[in-house]
C-alpha cells in the first residue's frame, strides 16, 4: 500500500504536516499493542504489522524527498530516467556553491552562515518549484524528476553546511 493510502490522505506534495502528524498519532494509538492484549494472536500480529507500516508511511511522507519519490512511484514515473538529469547550468551553479563552501570554511563562521542562508533560499525555491510541478502540473521549471534530483543536491549541500554551522 502506498504511504498516502496507508495514512488515508490525498496523494499530493503539499501536505499539512501538523494534520498528518495527528493522523499518524491517532492511527498509532488505535493500533498500539496495549489495546490488543485481549485479541486473537493473528489479530495481534495484524495490528502490529499495521502499526509498523503506519510508522514507515509517516517517515516517508514527512520527508519532502521521500514524499516526492512516493508520488512519482504512484504515477509510474521513474525517478532516475533521462529527464531526471540536472542541467549543465545547474551543475555549474552547484560546483560554484561547493567552491564557495571551501572558501567559507577558511573564512569562518560568519561566511558559513551567509552561505547557509543563500543555500537555504535555493533549496526553498527548488521545493516550491517541485510542489507546483507535482501538484499543479507546472512544467516551467522542468519535469518533477529533475527538480527532485536538484532538491537532493541542495539538501546534500545544506546537510554539510548544517554540520559546519552547528560546530561553529
Amino acid at each position: 500500500m502506498n504511504p498516502f493510502a496507508r495514512l488515508g490522505v490525498e496523494p499530493k506534495f503539499a501536505v499539512d504536516l501538523t494534520e498528518l502528524e495527528r493522523v499518524h498519532r491517532d492511527l498509532s494509538r488505535a493500533l498500539h499493542p496495549d489495546r490488543h492484549v485481549q485479541s486473537m494472536p493473528s489479530e495481534r500480529r495484524r495490528t502490529l504489522d499495521e502499526a509498523v507500516a503506519v510508522n514507515e508511511a509517516w517517515r516517508v511522507l514527512r520527508s519532502p524527498v521521500r514524499r516526492a519519490e512516493a508520488l512519482l512511484a504512484l504515477r509510474d514515473e521513474p525517478v532516475d530516467g533521462a529527464d531526471a538529469k540536472p542541467s549543465a547550468s545547474f551543475l555549474m551553479a552547484m560546483m560554484e556553491r561547493r567552491e564557495e563552501l571551501e572558501s567559507a570554511k577558511a573564512k569562518g563562521p560568519a561566511a558559513l552562515l551567509t552561505l547557509e542562508q543563500a543555500a537555504t533560499l535555493d533549496a526553498d525555491r527548488c521545493l516550491a518549484a517541485l510542489s507546483s510541478a507535482l501538484d499543479g502540473g507546472d512544467a516551467t521549471n522542468g519535469p518533477p524528476a529533475r527538480l527532485l534530483a536538484e532538491l537532493r543536491f541542495h539538501r546534500r549541500l545544506l546537510d554539510e553546511l548544517g554540520d559546519l554551522t552547528a560546530d561553529a
Binding site: A88, F90, L91, M92, M94, L148, R152, F153
Partner: peptide, 13 residues
Amino acid sequence: GLVGAPACGDVMR
C-alpha cells in the same frame, strides 16, 4: 566534463 549523481548529490568536474 561536469557531472552529478542525483541519488547522492555528488558533483564531479
